[in-house]
Write a protein that binds this DNA or RNA. Structure first.
Lengths: 127, 127
DNA sequence: CTAGTTGCAAAGCATTTGCCTGTGG
DNA sequence: CCACAGGCAAATGCTTTGCAACTAG
């Protein structure tokens, strides 16, 4: 069964407050403002349970460790933007056409990932 | 400068023989058939130098550790296809239009990655 | 010769797990 | 109450690094 512990509440609210994919350390930092004793191991264990419960969804970018976002944010098709300045990842709305034209003959496409890199609005403003 | 050591020769020939992206452990296993004393640390150091020398190129897919392939196989802008049946990774020619339309206001794009998933021609035929 | 290379072992990191205490229901 | 949850620390697994011995040129 699932207990409504203060740790889990803090982690869930960190996701809600952020509105973007977070990594374990980011989650720890944010949730510690509510529960200072929170341990990183607990974050990992809680993330694992939340994934099993389909409360969150992993966001994996090439060459980087996984981030996680609320399942509600993943219920529609979307992609991600990775800021090279602050390392944050943002959700992007929409998609593109013409992916099929990349396929060689005989290949079947069942899904795809698109990741854009650059600088986010916050970082661009401060430059 | 660069020395033509037997270790490096073995690693390079492993890439040539494989003709596909290889991970550090795969490289170690293959190259040890020529140089049994080869150490994994040497593989990592050699890979780093080969990348600096632009002899190889890292291939990073979401949620997986890096593989590497000869630069000659990737001298142009391209993307990847990952077969869910055999786990092989293929290069894809070309790219798509309209990535800019995904950007929120204030965001600047400097690069992108596209990964298509599905089944390759070889696997599709055998099903 | 002798500076770049290697092997080995230890150090780093990120993530996981064991174990015992704490606590939600 | 008491089984699940959490804190802490040790254990992993992968990658990197320090260092002394080795070797290509």
């Amino acid at each position: 069964m699932q207990r409504q512990t203060q740790q889990r509440v803090a982690i869930e609210s960190a996701f809600v407050a952020a509105g973007r994919p977070l990594g374990p350390q980011e989650i720890l930092d944010a949730a510690r403002e509510q529960v200072p004793s929170l341990n990183l191991a607990t974050v990992y264990r809680t993330l694992k349970r939340m994934i099993e419960d389909k409360a969150i969804h992993p966001v994996e970018l090439p060459g980087e460790s996984a981030r996680y976002e609320l399942q509600s944010a993943a219920e529609h098709h979307h992609h991600h933007f990775r800021c090279g300045e602050c390392d944050a990842v943002y959700d992007l709305e929409g998609c593109v056409e013409g992916l099929h034209k990349l396929l060689p003959a005989g290949f079947l496409m069942t899904g795809h990932d698109i990741v854009l890199y650059g600088s986010c609005a916050a970082c661009g403003t401060s430059l």
